[in-house]
Each structure stands twice: as structure tokens, then as C-alpha cells.
Design a protein around this nucleic acid. Structure first.
Lengths: 225, 225
DNA sequence: AACTTTATAATTGTATACAGTTATTTTAAA
DNA sequence: TTTAAAATAACTGTATACAATTATAAAGTT
């Protein structure tokens, strides 16, 4: 372990954190599944110390829960939670576009325009993974332009939870085309520096994906949880 | 240490976490001050293991920062950050009142009404500490009624940061009287189940306290940071 | 004297050991 | 067979030891 940490300058804790987050998002660690530190440490070939620190981060990120007796389990999935997450996210994304409008340059606008083009292209190829990636990039670019560190921090925290649900969802082409329209609208209002409508449109856009997420979760709740 | 943990059923980590949070909020650990684990562990009479876990929590809460070399220091205070925090909080509090309106009972309304009375009383006594406490209780009661666990989780996270600034602020009686009026208005709209205005009023209420906070920080930034 | 280079010290990151707690199994009694 | 008690095992929480890294001080060079 140590050599690796030395070589890559990344701590074992961080490696464990990212690995576990990925495992939870992918469902390799199932919702509700109990986690035994020793066992997991052996599996990851690390000691309990950095693993515990990683689990602590995951706990604060809401991906695992700790019960009174100290036992940790993978956080369950619930409709209630999805709803809460998306409403909060829609507000944060609203804050962030508003701030972005204050700082945006022509270069930024060009980049966002370019991303929308790429998005359209991916849709025409029905390449859902790429669609997802560009959509994400669009939002994250706005994060950066906003300069709102705190909001961005919260958004990343939320997004790691949202990714759990996103993995489960299967979008239709219709959904993605609608999504592009919305991205265009948002960009339009950004260019116009029309904060009120940009925020409004962004919120609608985020909440639009909520319904989709809810349907997915409902399906899972019936079968598993 | 162990006996204590056994007796109170609270972990050393949590004790350290709460103690450090308090120290940072009170300014006993000053903004920017570097933290040496060994030294601090000795001071708290605990080992580095639970201390590190506590520091990790504080890092995610935004009360300390970790630089690339692993050194930890108390998070600095900045106007930009205060602004970000308050805008986010105003949105979250908005979400929370909205949800609260869905669930509120007569008993809840009575309690909130009672809290406002207590608030008025504290103001007439110019007892600022009590004013603060009842104001906090008013908001936190709404948190509970909302049932929005995720939003509440974020709010508590924000509030621990906000408390750093609150400690520095010195309210005037005028401010507090205005605050009572706003609380009354919020409650009024809650009773009417008027979500739009309740949210609006809540946001205004939170942002109103922002200016006050900014002034305080400006003063500090000139002197210290 | 200023700048490198080397050596030393301080500090963080990880592993391991052990203590304390909780869960599970076994044994005993009804 | 069910229930209670005791013993055992599994697991978490904390302390300590050590390895690796970074900062500091000392020595050497130009």
C-alpha cells in the first residue's frame, strides 16, 4: 500500500473512499448491506485505519449509515430521499446559474454552446453514456463559472447520491431530446443575463429528471427493499 | 478515555469533534491557525486515532482545511463565504417551511406561537443569549415538522459554520424587534398554508441577517485576516 | 553572504495490537 | 421444545508503533 501511496501521492484513505463510493453507486455493495470493517479491509488489502476514515467520509456523504451500536451499512434507497435530494439540488443549481451569470465571459458561452452541440451529436448516436457525460459537463462548467465554492461543494455531495439513482435509470430518447431543449433554454437565458428565468428554467430542468428517478426507485422498492 | 466512553456511551471521537467545533466557533482556535495532531491530542488527552476522525468530520463540515501536504488548519473566515452560506441557507430554509406547511398540526402552530411570545419576552429583557436560543428553536422546530431529513442535515452543517460568524456579531435591539416581526409573518403564512409567501418571507428573513454578518466579518477582515 | 546540499527533526499516514462492546452460540433449566 | 443464562466469538473503538513524507537546521560550496 505504502509504495502506491508514495508513487501516486494519493492516500490509501482516498483510494478506499473513491473505490467504495463507486461500489455503492454501482450497486456492488447493495442498499442495506452491512459492512464489516475487518472483512472489507482485507478485501481492499488495506488496514482498518484508512478504511474507517473512508467510511466516515461516506457516512457524511450519506452513502452509508452508522447505527447506535457502531455497525455500518450501505444507505438504503427511498423515494422520500430522492425527492428531497432533487428539490435541494434544483435550488442549489439555481443559486449557481445565478452567480454564473455575474461572471460569465464570451469564452464560457462558446464552451457551453459547444457542449450542447456535442450533446446533440451523442443523442443522434443514441450513445447514452456520452449523453450523460456531456450533460454532466454542462452543469459542472456552470458550477465553475459561478465561483460559488460552498454551493459547488454541496452539489458534489448531492451528486454522489444522485448517481446511485441515475445508474438505475434508463432514459428514453424522448427524454434526452427534451433535456437538450432545456439546456438550450438555460443557456439562452444565461446569455441574456436574465437571472430570474435562468434560475426558473434550471429548477424546472432538474425537477423534470426527478419524476424519472422516482419511477425507477419505485420499481426497485417493490422488488427488493 | 475508555471508561468515559463506556460510561457515557459516547465515543472519544464525538467528544473531540464537539469540543473542537466549539473551540473553533468560539474562536479559541483562530481562523488560519495550523493544527498539529500530536500536540492537540495531548491537549485533549486522547490518542491521534479518534482525533483524526474528528478532524475529518470538521474538514467535511468546512471548519478546518487540509492542504496538499496533509497539514490541517482552522478554516479562514471570508465575506465571500458568508454570502454563499447565507444564500444557500435561505434556500434550504425555504424548502423546509414549504414542507412544514404540508405536515403542520394545530399543536405545532401553538408551539411556534409560544416560541414567539418567549422571544418577545427575552427581547424586553434585552437578554441576547436567550433571544438567540428561542430564535434558533423557532427555526429548528420548523425543521422537525418538515420531515425533510436531507435538507435538515445540510442546514445543521451550514449552521455550525454560521455560528462562527454569529458569535462575532452584536445585534441591536432594533434588529431583534425586526426579527420578531419577521418570525410572526412567517408563522402567519404557515397558518394560512400560503407556501409562496411563507418561502418568500423566510428567504427575506435569512438574507436580512446576512448584511449584519457581512458587516461583522468586514471589521474582522480589516484587523486580523 | 547567498545558495545548495545534506542531515536532522517534526509531522502525517498506515498497520497492528488490545480493550471494550455487542452479537451469537452453547449449555442448562423449566 | 422453549426459555434463560453463560460462554464464546465477532466486531468496533482506541492506543501505540512504525513507515513515509515534509519541514527545518546544519554544513558545505561558490
Amino acid at each position: 500500500m505504502n509504495e502506491r501511496a508514495k508513487a501516486s501521492r494519493v492516500s490509501t484513505k482516498d483510494i478506499a473512499h473513491k473505490a467504495l463510493r463507486e461500489m455503492i453507486i454501482k450497486g456492488e455493495l447493495e442498499p442495506g448491506q452491512p459492512i464489516a470493517e475487518e472483512e472489507l479491509a482485507k478485501e481492499l488489502q488495506i488496514s482498518r485505519t484508512p478504511l474507517r476514515e473512508a467510511l466516515q467520509i461516506l457516512e457524511l456523504e450519506g452513502l452509508v449509515n452508522r447505527s447506535l451500536n457502531g455497525r455500518i451499512n450501505v444507505a438504503p434507497i427511498s423515494i422520500q430521499e430522492v425527492k428531497e435530494i432533487f428539490v435541494i439540488r434544483s435550488n442549489l443549481e439555481g443559486i449557481v446559474v445565478e452567480d454564473a451569470i455575474d461572471n460569465i465571459t464570451q469564452k464560457d458561452i462558446d464552451h457551453l454552446t459547444h457542449l450542447i452541440k456535442l450533446l446533440k451529436m451523442a443523442i443522434s448516436l443514441e450513445d447514452y453514456e456520452t449523453i450523460d457525460r456531456f450533460g454532466k459537463q454542462f452543469h459542472e462548467y456552470i458550477y465553475t463559472v459561478s465561483g460559488n465554492k460552498m454551493a459547488v461543494k454541496f452539489l458534489y455531495q448531492l451528486n454522489s447520491m444522485i448517481n446511485r439513482y441515475r445508474r438505475l435509470a434508463h432514459k428514453s430518447i424522448g427524454d434526452t431530446k427534451q433535456s437538450v431543449k432545456e439546456h438550450k433554454m438555460i443557456l439562452h437565458y444565461i446569455i441574456q443575463k436574465d437571472k430570474i428565468n435562468a434560475v426558473e428554467e434550471m429548477k424546472k430542468h432538474i425537477l423534470g429528471s426527478l419524476n424519472q428517478a422516482i419511477k425507477t426507485v419505485e420499481k426497485y422498492e417493490h422488488t427488493q427493499f
